[in-house]
Amino acid sequence: MTTYTLPKDKLPEFLSALSDYEIWAPVKKGPATLFDRLDDLKDVDLDLENQPVISKKAIFPQNEPLFSYDRKGTVTETDLNAVKNTIVFGIRPCDARSFTLLDPVFEGDVPDPYYRARRSKTALLGIACNDPFVNCFCTSIGGSPFGREGLDLLFIDCGDLFTLEVITETGKEITGKASSLLSPATAESSEQIAQAATDKIKRHIDLTGLPEKLASLFEHPVWKEFASKCIGCGICTYSCPTCYCFDMQDETTLKQGRRVRIWDSCMFPEYTLHASGHNPRATRTERFRNRIYHKFKFNMDNFHSYSCVGCGRCISLCPVNIDLIDYLSRVKETE
């Protein structure tokens, strides 16, 4: 594997060498750190103390207009050729890995052109987690703080400089554009820092046998108990890098309209509301159960992986302490 070093103060120059690309990165917006398209390279804020939300929107935007129409009957499809080559910089390994879990969903039997357009033109430049966050449990679910899966380039914070690991051809191309800023790294490997980071992860769960266990618990009263403190907001699903549910809406004004695809959340009653007024997931119990089953059983049945990368965001952001790790452990103990 090719590795380079980049002095940290050269990061702005590195990013400006990539000006052919649209760049997304963590940005400070008020007190929050969010992923956003960069208008000004100075806005990048790697802020390693805060876990940024939400990187999936770079490839799976919260609103995706599919086509627009007017009263004359003109229909204009969204021009996917207009999607620019994009770089997502500063993404965490778990978030990068999440796209490999979204791929089979969007690119399965009926490939989704909108997802494909962005996915195929987006390079993921990750930052390894020297200091995992409090609820990170990526190592329990197939990832790691130095995980390379899904990434094109991995940045490792080594004090005054970054070490850059080139993982894919795209990564190689990108380093090529900024080669004057990079020096070849000495043979020293990152394994030690990676091990130290992994050791810092405090939250673990053994998921062996979970899908089989869930298969036998669908009607168990435990779901009602679990859901009893849920207040039914969508913070867990919207902040989750692997949640992908969406709604289709026609949004019209007097003269024109558009069909748009918008993130939805299985935690909202409207999600399953039928036109008849009937709602098959009428209460929080069914909705909460569905979230767990989708992630840890149905996704396994359909795509042979969990729909979770262990980023811990749903745990950290939940206003009422619904703790996925805790709940999954209790599922395992439930008879």
Partner: peptide, 16 residues
Amino acid sequence: QNQFSRCIRCYACRNS
């Protein structure tokens, strides 16, 4: 505008 532009409409505010 700056504030509301970043709302993701998770409705955690409303539901809590």
